[in-house]
Design a protein around this nucleic acid. Sequence first.
DNA 1: TCTGGTCAAGGTGGT
DNA 2: ACCACCTTGACCAGA
Length: 297
Amino acid sequence: MKIGYPCLNRSLDCRVNQGFRLANLEPKRLTETIAANLKCLESMIRFNTAHGLLFLRISSDLIPFGSHAANRIDWRSQFRDHLSGLDDLLKQNQFRISMHPGQYTLLNSPSEEVVTNSVRDLNYHADVLDLLGLDASAKIQLHIGGRYGDPAAALKRFVVNFNNLEERVRRRLVIENDERLYALADVIAVYERTGAPVLFDVFHHSVLNRGESLHQALEISRKTWRAADGLPMVDYSSQLIDGKIGAHAQHLDEGHFVEFLNASRPYNFDLMLEIKDKETSALRALKVAAADTRLVC
DNA sequence: TCTGGTCAAGGTGGT
DNA sequence: ACCACCTTGACCAGA
């Protein structure tokens, strides 16, 4: 079990997701921003290495407008060496890597244009991981998408569009249960028709489920990961006190986390802590989990 | 330097 | 048909 926090580090004096408005897009600025973001990603990798946080989710905003038609610079060639340099760092320290496209990336939309844009966005994510030289254990996690008034048809569209993706994208895609529309059982149904492993989200499952216990859910989801996919990935969070149901906690709830660690044995997985204060909670989690024999840090 | 409106992008659900 | 809301961090214009 490696532990990580998503995308951003609050204690560094740089940012990996610097951007600007589309109206201000200009090749020189784009090139400079990408260079700055990559430099900051290196700082983040060094920070995580030093602290034993070896599960890294790379921000989708690493390359501003990464999949947008207006991005016309050849960043893939321009930053090829820079990216493979980062890969050395990642491999030396045995990092586990993921990425998570945003809410607008929807493979199952009834709109052809939305699907086209989504495919391009998934290609972009795969480009980053490919250029980093990472194997198939580096994953891109996606939700099934919308319901569009007809969940069966929406699921079918997901399967068809998934199976039309390039192999280099398909091998990296894993599907995550959400907290409103598609529960673990739905994601499993998609797995059966696509072979895409299931990334189990503990918190979403606590909000939307069909009665599976944590144990059952971990058992069901882990079986969908093959050797080449690496250890299963699991997302963890807890409810924000006094927040709406489904809102992520601001800080790690240590009691809840200890309970999760105990209840999740003997299953092993890499754990992403989706908690607002990012590395602060991840570092606390490492301490809490210090005696857990599954932990790698 | 601060602040509030806005940002590439879609969809749900209440009225 | 319309509109508030989602979920979020950061940009940026105007004060």
